[in-house]
Design a protein around this nucleic acid. Sequence first.
DNA 1: ACAGGCATGTAAATAGTTACATGATTCG
DNA 2: CGAATCATGTAACTATTTACATGCCTGT
Lengths: 184, 184
Amino acid sequence: MELSATAYVILGMVAREPQSGYEIKALVDKTTRFFWAASYGQIYPELRRLAEAGLVRGIDASRGERKRTVYEITADGRAALEKWLREPPRTYELREEGLLKLFFAGALPPEEAVATLRAMRDHRLGVAEELSAIEAKALIKDLRGDPFPLMVLRGGIEFNEWFADWCGRMERQLLDPVRERRSS
Amino acid sequence: MELSATAYVILGMVAREPQSGYEIKALVDKTTRFFWAASYGQIYPELRRLAEAGLVRGIDASRGERKRTVYEITADGRAALEKWLREPPRTYELREEGLLKLFFAGALPPEEAVATLRAMRDHRLGVAEELSAIEAKALIKDLRGDPFPLMVLRGGIEFNEWFADWCGRMERQLLDPVRERRSS
DNA sequence: ACAGGCATGTAAATAGTTACATGATTCG
DNA sequence: CGAATCATGTAACTATTTACATGCCTGT
């Protein structure tokens, strides 16, 4: 059975401990959203499909009158998750709209093309800062023995900083034709 | 009027010179596909919509019996493209399935988690090589005065190399607990 | 009382992929 | 002749976002 990457996000989240749909969404927004987001419109229908396929099991966890269902992973679900984790990644595409704009920046006058790079740089620095704020909070709690979430978060920070730096270098290259001639 | 990013890809491609749908697809596959891909199922319907909106104009360019339409950008189309190019980027998400697997790698025994990083590294080195092959070809022809396509391509190569290096560093960190303790 | 967070869900729209169908032309 | 490439397109499916509807519970 073919599962979407979003299905594996859900499976991975409930594999740690049982979660409600609402909690999964909150977790995704705090953790994987910078490289894989998910909306309620995906999470709830997907939870139902996973339950029908026997990969998760819904458990009533109502609090008083407020109805609530948490989902736990089944043995089959864990097997499916581990199988997926063992397959090599094959992502080719990054989906970076900034690079798209830069690719076509020749359609603008040169000063404005430089502004594109500057905007990309500012944006990436902003994201790096946002992620750093999350890191600070993440360090305080909830990392009993699993180094990977923090590793990925730090990778995200480093990536955004690297990208911002690249934008800065490209900006200088555009503004300094001598250096450009030398390096090409 | 709101246009999708894919619509701007098409607009940007025909802004250089008039292209048929088939040529646009071939161009995208040679250039933007590592950060923004497009399929025939998007390109042909989108060309029709853009023509209806007056942003491109179809011109019959049949060769003998073989029907063929090339699209050229209109003044309105150029204005829409430039307006979009001037807006700051806002991409937050990267969609990297490898990072997703790494995030959940704690569900596997430690040796296999290391294998995830190794697979990511190999994959990124492979993509860097593919892009380098394209770069070699791109250098030969077709870059009259527009530095941006090559800049973006080189950025893609650098990114994949940076990412591969990061994977290598993370792998060593996992294999060397002393260093890990020091850095956290 | 009311704001804010908890909780579940759906409808509609948009976006994007895959697979197929059709047929011409070119090159070996 | 057959394969590859040129060329256009659609149907069906899958993925994803956005906006909305509903209602409970907690703290001020």
